[in-house]
Write a protein that binds this DNA or RNA. Structure first.
Lengths: 162, 162
DNA sequence: CTCTTGCAGTTTGCAATTAAACTCGCACAC
DNA sequence: GTGTGCGAGTTTAATTGCAAACTGCAAGAG
């Protein structure tokens, strides 16, 4: 008997190998942290800056809020990152009919095209050994989880109501 | 012709629906941020504190570094979070033969058992509609990606060498 | 005894992420 | 005109996450 009892027996606990959030955080953290460090060292821009270049490559001349939608990025991030990209002369904002439209400058497009090659090489490494069927299955499962996020929010809200 | 040319045509860019890192960041961010906010509001502890409770529930009386291994958490995070848990009298550290061993206090175990119920309800919502076969497939694919992380690191290192 | 070595843990600095509060300009009502 | 409200963007505070530098202790070598 000690001055204060502690728990010495194992109890019911989460098993990492059968717990999806564990895998998701592990994979995402390693991937995005690694990517960010890599892009910073090679090109002096971070992951968010690259995501914005990517959105603008996809749809030139869009507004900041459209970027938020497209790549599910918080508007505060878009605000800060586009400012950096403008300072670096990779992106330019123009006012047209009261709207602030964002455009890639040639150097920005060029940088984007360099980075996308690397991004795909990293994804290819992540998916090494996956055949077409595996990939279809994977994207299917990921998409179903994405749609279920609403249900997770519902659980959260119910718990917060009480 | 304007004072400076911008890119007006869309180019080759990442399609979110066929880009795994996008899904991973989307799913992980929503899940872990949501979980963290939920646990903070309900119990005043964050996601990392809960993960540590979980590790200690699984293996009582382990060292901090063992926690890092078990749940792939950075040791700085473990350091900060265990301190908070000690301050909250949920966890206790004891020196035994020069080793700093961590133990759950009864209140810590109780809190863990409350939260694990919620964690599983959230995971169930995320995986709503998945049958046993889907789950086996999903864990298999996630595990293969986890093992491929080494290959991603290799790609990164090669690029940094140059 | 002292110096080195190495392991465990802490602190620090920077990036990423979110919500929420705030600002700014424009349009429409009165 | 005044003001009310809305949409777009910016700023701020809190949390998570990583690497790298630092501290402290203990065991061995000489």
């Amino acid at each position: 008997m000690t001055d204060q009892d502690v728990i010495t027996e194992a109890g019911k606990s989460v098993k990492a190998e059968r717990y999806v959030p564990y895998y998701l955080s592990l994979l995402n953290n390693r991937l995005s942290w690694g990517g960010s460090q890599l892009y910073l060292k090679l090109f002096d821009i971070g992951l968010n800056e690259w995501r914005i270049l990517s959105a603008l490559r996809n749809e030139p001349g869009i507004q900041a809020l459209r970027i938020c939608e497209m790549i599910t990025l918080n508007k505060s991030v878009v605000s800060r990152s586009t400012r950096r990209l403008e300072e670096m002369k990779l992106v330019e904002a123009r006012l047209e009919q009261g709207k602030r439209l964002l455009w890639l400058l040639p150097r920005g497009a060029e940088l984007h095209d360099q980075i996308i090659e690397i991004a795909y090489r990293r994804q290819d490494a992540l998916l090494d050994g996956f055949d077409q069927k595996d990939l279809d299955t994977l994207y299917g499962l990921l998409e179903r989880m994405r749609q279920n996020l609403k249900k997770v929010d519902k659980v959260d809200n119910e718990l917060l109501q009480r």
